[in-house]
Simulated scan of single mutants.
Amino acid sequence: MKFLSLIIITSLHLLNASTPTKLSCDYEFHYYDVVGSIYQCDVDNVLSITSKDQAIIGSASESHYGMRTNSDVSGISMNNKYIQYFPIGLEKIFKNIKLIHAQNNFIQEVDQSDLKHFPELAELNLHNNEIKTIEKGLFDYNPKLVYVSFSNNKIFYIHHEVFDGLKVLTYLYLNSNTCIDKGAYLSRSEVLNVLDYVKSDCLGLEYQKIEEKFKELEDESTDPHIDFKYKLDNLEAEFNRSSVFNLTSIIERLNKLKMMEPKELIEAKRIPCIEYDERDVNDGKSSGIAYEIILILVIAISVALFGSIIFLFVKLNRID
Rank of each mutant, 00 (worst) to 15 (best):
K2T: 05
I7V: 15
T10M: 07
L15W: 09
T21W: 08
Y27M: 02
F29T: 07
F29Q: 13
G36L: 04
Q40A: 15
N45S: 07
V46S: 12
I49P: 02
T50S: 13
Q54T: 13
A55M: 10
I57H: 04
I57W: 05
A60D: 01
A60V: 01
S63V: 03
Y65S: 13
M67V: 15
R68S: 01
V73D: 02
S77V: 15
M78G: 01
Y82M: 05
Y82Q: 06
I83N: 04
F86P: 04
E91S: 05
I93K: 00
K95W: 10
A102E: 03
Q103E: 09
V110S: 03
K116G: 05
E120C: 14
L121Y: 05
N128D: 07
N129I: 02
N129H: 04
G137R: 03
N142P: 11
K144R: 11
L145G: 01
V148D: 00
S151I: 04
N152Y: 10
V162I: 12
G165V: 14
V168L: 13
L169K: 03
Y171T: 08
Y171D: 03
L174D: 07
L174K: 06
N175P: 00
D181C: 08
L192R: 14
D196H: 13
V198P: 04
E206Q: 02
F214N: 01
E216Q: 05
D219T: 14
F228P: 02
D233Y: 06
V244R: 11
T248P: 04
I251N: 02
L254A: 03
L254K: 10
K256T: 14
M260D: 02
E261D: 12
E261G: 03
P262G: 00
K269Y: 10
I271G: 03
I274Y: 00
E275Y: 10
Y276F: 14
Y276T: 12
D280Y: 03
V281C: 05
D283M: 11
G284M: 01
V303L: 06
L305M: 12
G307M: 14
S308V: 07
L312Q: 09
K315T: 11
R318W: 11
D320Q: 13
